[in-house]
Design a binder for these strands. Structure first.
Length: 633
RNA sequence: GCCGAUGUAGCUCAAAGGUAGAGCAAUUGAUUUGUAAUCAAUAGGUUGGGGGUUCAAUUCCCUUCAUCGGCUCCA
């Protein structure tokens, strides 16, 4: 008797060996139809995996992430099969599922063209129609090497090299296609109903730019055509939210060829939003005991030698400039300046922690291919601060910082965050014990606050481990905002000290942090998050005054003056156009409120409000209107 | 930097080996309008830059710059 336990705690009994598929069939025909793979005693397996002992069984469908992953991974195999049939000379590399779909890397001299993608997609559909079963075969390492040598799949052989001798290796075959793969997979290719190959790109073998660049094809698939159509619709909608498009449409910023790539021009409306963000930022920091500072954009070579940047950060720094025979560098970071401020006088332990904050504009060389709107630029303003404290104060400061960061991001409307703990990279300064201690301290803070996080192994800065908080853009790509970095490099290098209670000099700890990350990136993410519909307090123009005829222009001017007096940002549309035209124009510019003023309003001393995307709010007196506006702030 | 695609008016897009056209926006005039586009006229371009092929290039070729999608790298 074999006892099967299901996730809801219910159980089923079988007389002899049973498969996950059979269990699914016994639960419901729908589940059997939708089933993709299973987990038996927490081990991912194919649906036809024989279960011989008492087990817990979970059936995965496309509705959950594990099911999706297997579904897409199986589609990647299907694509590779189609590619091998159409282009027998290509060598296959790797083809995993990703967050939205899958890709497969191929070694081929010619690029894949649009027409190639079409052909591959068509062939995939033909292969899917045949409902070819995915067969699993287990082999020894020697057998696997023999198999893939015969097929001359050199990349697979390279992967095999890294697998330990005694490990059982599996391969999967559907039709004429065999791939080295851990699995599990779909029962057959017929489950893959709707397929779209999305784009091609180059990708380095094993993600290392020293290796050969392979040709990658990205795609996605779904169990129904409708889901595919919905996904493609989502992509279209997302591109409307792209901050680069909104920036142009709403006249917020531009990046100009003549000025230079990666260098941002903030137009008046964008600058207003930035001003509002920065003002709020400064106020909040003052409340948290930060002190504002300003520092220069250049510094002597000496300074950057002391800080270590010329050693560890040189490839991101612009070339030196000569001033009176001395070498200077434009700053890629603010820390040496903040430290210089700290070091300008002697500090007692009673003064600590000292928190120096600056909206500091830095310039970093970014390789041409990585620039991306405002998300990745060459000149940007960090909302930077350095916290200098005693070792005992360190943990508490980190705790406060995490809370402060999340509160600040929430104030701008964000709700979902991805938190990472980035650990020691290979190229770095400092002792291993210090790294371990600091990393443990950061992890401890996250755990204490009950926050979920992932470990980004080797992702730390050269001077210390860090906590990063990321926010997603319109297309689901994550961008780093908050970074909290421990730095035990610079206090040493700059010989920072404080006088302790024992009347002797001690080395302080230093935390380097940015909450928004960079104002540019944060602004871009904010725009995308709100689809350009900024909340009232951040809208560059809050109210558009719309007189219905020229006869109401004077009345509109009076209202405009009163609104300005109350601190609202408004504009008057005095063009000789019909009201509908002016409303359309204000709606398209995503202005939160419109104030419609016709002869009725003028006669009764009233205001008619219209709210963006909501519509007409009706006529009202001044106090009512102000109350509505205030409520939205 | 690497792989691929793209570059035409302020914006969105057409056309084409014989020197470019529309809609929106802009300007001017008429219109004075009640909740998402009033009508008309005008103006706007060295087709990203440079070079080559050709009687002729914006179209074909080379090169360079930039943008877009990825890779690597990062706030």
């Amino acid at each position: 008797m074999i006892k099967i336990t299901l996730p809801d705690g219910s159980g089923r009994e079988y007389n002899s060996s049973v498969t996950a598929l059979k269990v699914a069939e016994d639960i419901s025909p729908e589940l059997a139809e939708e089933a993709i793979c299973a987990e038996v005693n927490n081990k991912p397996v194919d649906l036809n995996y024989p279960i011989d002992t008492d087990s817990t069984v979970v059936i995965h469908t496309f509705k959950n992430d594990k099911g999706k992953e297997v579904y897409w991974h199986s589609t990647a195999h299907l694509m590779a099969q189609a590619v091998k049939q159409l282009f027998p000379d290509v060598k296959i590399a790797i083809g995993p599922a990703i967050e939205q779909g899958f890709y497969y890397d191929f070694d081929r001299d010619e690029p894949f063209t649009e027409e190639d993608l079409q052909k591959i997609e068509t062939r995939m559909k033909e292969l899917s129609a045949k409902a070819l079963p995915y067969y699993r075969t287990e082999l020894s390492k020697a057998e696997a090497i023999e198999l893939f040598s015969k097929m001359d799949e050199t990349y697979k052989l390279e992967l095999l090299e890294d697998i330990p001798e005694n490990e059982i290796i599996s391969s999967y075959r559907q039709g004429d296609f065999i791939d080295l793969c851990r699995g599990p997979h779909l029962p057959d290719t017929g489950k893959i109903k709707a397929i779209k190959l999305l784009r091609t790109s180059g990708a380095y073998w094993r993600g290392d730019e020293k290796n050969k660049m392979l040709k990658r094809i990205y795609g996605i698939s779904f169990p129904t055509e409708k889901e595919l159509a919905d996904y493609l619709h989502f992509l279209e909608e997302a591109s409307k939210r792209d901050h680069r498009k909104l920036g142009k449409d709403l006249d917020l910023f531009s990046i100009n060829d003549e000025v230079g790539p990666g260098l941002v021009l903030w137009h008046p409306k964008g600058a207003m939003v930035r001003h509002l963000i920065e003002t709020y930022w400064k106020e909040e920091h003052l409340k948290k005991g930060y002190q504002l500072v300003y520092t220069p954009h250049l510094g002597r070579a000496n300074l950057w030698e002391t800080s270590g940047h010329l050693n560890f950060y040189k490839e991101n720094m612009y070339s030196k400039m000569d001033i009176d025979g001395q070498d200077y560098y434009i700053k890629p970071m603010n820390c040496p300046f903040h430290i210089s401020i700290y070091n300008s006088s002697l500090h007692s332990y009673r003064e600590l922690p000292i928190r120096l904050a600056e909206l500091g504009t830095v310039y970093r060389y970014e390789r041409s291919g990585v620039l991306h709107g405002l998300m990745r630029v060459r000149g940007f303003t960090q909302d930077d601060a350095h916290i200098i404290c005693t070792p005992e104060q360190m943990d508490r400061e980190v705790d406060k910082l995490i809370v402060f960061s999340l509160d600040m991001l929430k104030a701008f409307g964000f709700k979902e965050f991805l938190i990472y703990l980035a650990t020691k990279p290979e190229d770095c300064v400092g002792e291993k014990e210090d790294w371990d201690k600091a990393t443990a301290s950061l992890a401890n803070s996250l755990q204490k606050l009950g926050l979920e996080y992932k470990v980004d192994s080797g992702g730390g800065a050269f001077y210390g481990p860090k906590i990063d908080i990321k926010i997603k853009d319109a297309l689901g790509r994550a961008w780093q905002c908050t970074t909290i970095q421990f730095d035990f490099n610079e206090p040493e290098r700059f010989d920072m000290i404080y006088i302790g209670g024992d009347n002797s000099a001690h080395r302080p700890y230093m935390i380097h942090r940015a909450v928004l990350g960079s104002v540019e990136r944060f602004f871009a993410t904010l725009l995308e998050y709100h689809s350009g519909n900024l909340p009232l307090w951040l809208a560059p123009v809050q109210i558009m005054l719309i007189p219905i005829t020229d006869a109401q222009i004077n009345y509109a001017r009076k209202i405009e003056e009163q609104l300005l007096e109350q601190g609202f940002r408004c504009e008057l549309d005095s063009r000789s156009e019909k009201m509908g035209y002016k409303i359309r124009s204000a709606e398209k510019n995503k202005i939160p409120f419109m104030c419609i003023l016709g002869k009725n309003e003028a006669a009764n001393n009233q205001i008619t409000l219209r709210q963006h995307t909501v519509g007409d709010l009706g006529a009202m007196n001044w106090e009512e209107a102000i109350a509505i506006l205030r409520k939205e702030l």
